[in-house]
């Protein structure tokens, strides 16, 4: 697995997949839908899939002395590493906004989602959807990128809209907590987001391995 992951990083990946990790810093922005940071990181991964496809990466990988399912697992590992790096970048502004800038007027007057543990959990959900819809969808054919990505864009932005709207519903204001307010409930939502991410990614990877075995390359 280490070898195939090395191949992903050295040969298959587009430079944009690495650069777009920095969109995690969008969690600094007040008055902006910060979950778009997760979407832009996913866009970098999409570029990487496109780059790899044009380089005949799938057939090259399938010819290597590894099981075909390891080709798929290697790609999922690469995707997860980029996503987790993006989340780690998001953690920096989140911690700053929850501590030193907890009382900042700019952030307090922000009508959109605040950067807190719930937002990080929501970012995990967006990445889980990407893995389920786009990565899993790609491995139905191992060359069609457009349809699964457009589907992800639609579902992803609907979810971003829902996450942004939730704290405006009466009784749900605590989702937009500042500082250490409602920390216990916020932490549970973060764990829930991680659970959704793990479940969608693992199930998607299993299905993609099955599909990839049946594809004619």
């Amino acid at each position: 697995m280490r070898n195939i992951l090395t191949k992903e990083f050295r040969l298959s990946a587009s430079i944009l997949a690495y650069l777009f990790i920095l969109f995690g810093f969008m969690f600094f922005l007040p008055g902006y839908p910060i979950l778009c940071g997760a979407f832009f990181s996913a866009l970098g991964l999409f570029q990487s899939f496109q780059f790899a496809r044009e380089a005949n990466d799938t057939v090259f990988s399938a010819l290597l002395p590894i099981a075909k399912k390891d080709v798929v697992r290697g790609r999922y590992c690469f995707v997860c590493i980029i996503e987790i790096c993006t989340i780690l970048v998001m953690v920096i502004p989140t911690v700053l906004r929850m501590t030193v800038w907890a009382d900042s007027v700019v952030y307090r007057s922000n009508a959109l989602m605040n950067a807190n543990l719930f937002a990080l959990g929501a970012a995990f959900v967006i990445f889980g959807l990407f893995n389920w819809i786009f990565v899993g969808g790609f491995y139905k054919t191992a060359y069609k990128l457009g349809r699964p990505f457009v589907t992800f864009i639609i579902v992803g932005f609907v979810c971003i809209g829902i996450f942004e709207a939730l704290h405006h519903i009466p009784g749900m204001e605590w989702l937009d907590s500042f500082g250490t307010d409602n920390l216990g409930r916020q932490f549970i939502l973060l764990l829930a987001g991680i659970a959704v991410y793990i479940v969608t990614t693992v199930l998607s990877c299993r299905k993609a391995c099955e599909n990839f075995e049946k594809i004619d390359l």
Binding site: T6, K7, R10, L11, A55, N56, D57, F60
Partner: peptide, 15 residues
């Protein structure tokens, strides 16, 4: 087939 057309032979072989 053209594997990784913009990578050097050195990089491809190393992997």
């Amino acid at each position: 087939v053209n594997w990784y057309p913009r990578k050097t032979i050195r990089d491809i072989v190393r992997v």
